[in-house]
Simulated scan of single mutants.
Amino acid sequence: MDQFLQLTVAGLGTGMIYALAAVGFVIIYKASDVINFAQGDLLLFGTYLIFFSLVQIGLPWTVGVLLTMLVAAGIGVAVERTVLRPLIGEPIISMIMVTIGLSSVLRAVVHAIWGPQPRTFPSFLPEGEVMLGSAVVSADRLVAIPLALALLAGLALFFRRTRSGIAMRAIADDQQAALSMGISIPRVFATAWALAAVTAAIGGIMLGNIVGVTPNVAQIGLRVFPVVILGGLDSIRGAVVGGAIIGLLEFYAGGYIGHGLNLIIPYVVLIIVLMVRPYGLFGKEIIERV
């Protein structure tokens, strides 16, 4: 029972970080129908940005986090304006290939600036272990769960209560109707990319606190794809549920079975979901009649 509780806390803590990155993926897909293969590398870039802000510049935590979020938002807008906007009207595959190229560019920039060696920075999450009943759990992962859920709840309110959020939902439903109502689609696309980059950066900040600053964070970011496929490509709620499920399955498989199964279980889930329910748990089922 103690091991089960420990694995559950660790799985949910990691799963909520997956959900933060997956929400950015969903935002871009809902706004523009583009599958962003660079989302995991935006997570990586956010991890190194916070390291740069705190260690190399020496900023306080609050200022460093704010700077990381602002730079991430700027990168998202710059990518949308300079790379993706000229491709509006082109086949979707062109935009998808651009995001694959962007993934390689971001990873190369990180290696060129910071190198491959792992780094550390002062943690803002509590360190050490706490007792839950008779079980000992990691304090940082325990705190990461409500923190990530609060951020995800804030995003949900953004989509329901703000003009920009409502505009994104309108474009996701019908771009032509949204355009006829005076909604600026390019502006909404830029906002979507900025939000996606910021959510990935926040996930990277939390992940850097837990596992350290390392290029392997990009590999962890690859879990975004099983998460969004499981939850549904166009569902923010699905990203949260999918992140929790994938995180739990990883740690249960690693804790009870081992033999590296935790590394492949997300992709086994991805294949099964694509075969059984390709639109995910909460995705919109599209039926084409010919």
Rank of each mutant, 00 (worst) to 15 (best):
A73D: 03
G133K: 09
G11P: 01
P60C: 15
S164D: 05
L70D: 04
R119Y: 08
V26W: 05
G11L: 08
L233Q: 05
V198S: 11
L207F: 10
A135Y: 09
Y48C: 08
G208C: 14
V228C: 10
G128P: 01
A253G: 09
V224H: 02
R85D: 01
V198T: 10
V268E: 04
I183K: 04
G203C: 14
V109H: 01
V188L: 14
V224M: 03
A19Y: 12
I166R: 14
S134E: 11
I236N: 01
T162I: 10
V79Q: 00
M69G: 07
T99F: 15
T99E: 05
Y279L: 07
G203W: 10
L44I: 00
M69Q: 03
I246E: 02
G203S: 11
D140K: 12
N36I: 14
Y48M: 04
Y267F: 14
L151Q: 03
F282Q: 01
I75D: 04
T120W: 09
I245D: 00
L49A: 15
V228G: 07
I246H: 11
L142Q: 10
T199F: 15
Q175F: 09
I236R: 02
A239R: 00
P118R: 10
P118M: 11
L20Y: 11
M131F: 15
I287H: 07
G133W: 08
E127D: 08
V143D: 05
M16C: 12
S235N: 06
L155I: 06
F37V: 07
L233P: 02
G15T: 13
L142G: 03
P278G: 15
V83Y: 00
D140N: 13
I257P: 02
M97N: 02
G24R: 08
I50V: 15
L12Y: 11
V217Q: 04
G232T: 12
I100N: 12
L152C: 02
L222D: 03
M97W: 00
L66R: 03
A150D: 06
V224E: 08
T99V: 12
A21C: 13
M275L: 14
A135I: 05
D140R: 04
L12H: 04
L66N: 01
K30G: 15
L54D: 05
Q39W: 12
S138C: 13
T14P: 00
A112M: 05
F251T: 07
G154M: 12
G243W: 12
S138I: 11
Y48K: 05
Y18W: 06
P118F: 07
Y252C: 03
R289L: 09
